[in-house]
């Protein structure tokens, strides 16, 4: 016996295996970021001033200064989500050339996001706003750092499908399309998290 429903859909559940698997994984991710957000809310409601004032004063002026960068990053990430879903559409229409363009742009957007993030981090650290400075900086670096790790993970997987993984298209095109749908779901989720991080950490202080 071979493992069934790897590609085809099981009739009574209406999904194939990895579709269910990725959604379960995302459910656990929801709870992971939920835990981080819960801590954020608890620290925030417990603090007399937010962001707290530490030895280097308040982060607030610097933070307002970085709003344009963060806005730019938001747009980049949303765009990468759109190109991701377009890459899947391209596979559905059996257009491998278009698929490569869209997937490549997604990876490019992700890298741009990280570069901007890098300058943002180094600027803050340079000004003395390290994670240990106050609880806002702590939660800021933890959540955005973990989100950044998710981006890096995403880039690795996407790059795999852009490079060696694409061979599967010749042998099992349907399975490959499913895989792109799965990694797409993950990628949109990373985008979704950022949509909540952006106002919580940058705007509403």
């Amino acid at each position: 016996m071979e493992i069934p429903y790897n590609v085809e859909v099981r009739e009574d559940t209406g999904v194939y295996n990895s579709k269910l698997g990725i959604w379960l994984f995302l459910a656990s991710e929801v709870m992971l970021f939920g835990g981080l957000f819960s801590a954020f809310i608890l620290l925030r409601t417990g603090a007399p001033v937010w962001p707290p004032i530490g030895v280097n004063g308040s982060i607030l002026p610097l933070l307002e200064h970085t709003i344009p960068h963060a806005t730019f990053n938001t747009i980049v990430l949303i765009a990468s989500s759109v190109t991701m879903v377009m890459a899947w559409v391209a596979l559905k229409t059996k257009d491998l050339g278009k698929f490569k363009i869209y997937l490549g742009s997604t990876i490019l957007c992700a890298i741009i996001f990280l570069v901007v993030k890098y300058f943002e981090y180094t600027h803050k650290i340079h000004e003395g706003f390290v994670p240990a400075h106050d609880t806002f900086m702590a939660i800021y670096f933890t959540i955005t750092g973990l989100h950044g790790l998710h981006i890096i993970g995403g880039i690795i997987v996407l790059a795999y499908f852009f490079g060696p993984g694409i061979k599967m298209w010749d042998t099992e095109p349907e399975r490959f399309t499913n895989r792109i749908e799965i990694v797409g779901l993950y990628w949109h989720f990373v985008d979704l998290v950022w949509i909540f991080l952006f106002p919580s950490l940058y705007l509403l202080n």
Partner: peptide, 25 residues
């Protein structure tokens, strides 16, 4: 396991931050 473990993972990351980066979660 799926839904209860991730919050502990979050907490573990916080405690690591406290211990390694000197934060005060």
């Amino acid at each position: 396991l799926l839904l209860a473990f991730p919050p502990l993972e979050a907490a573990g990351i916080f405690q690591l931050m406290d211990r390694v980066f000197g934060t005060s979660f």
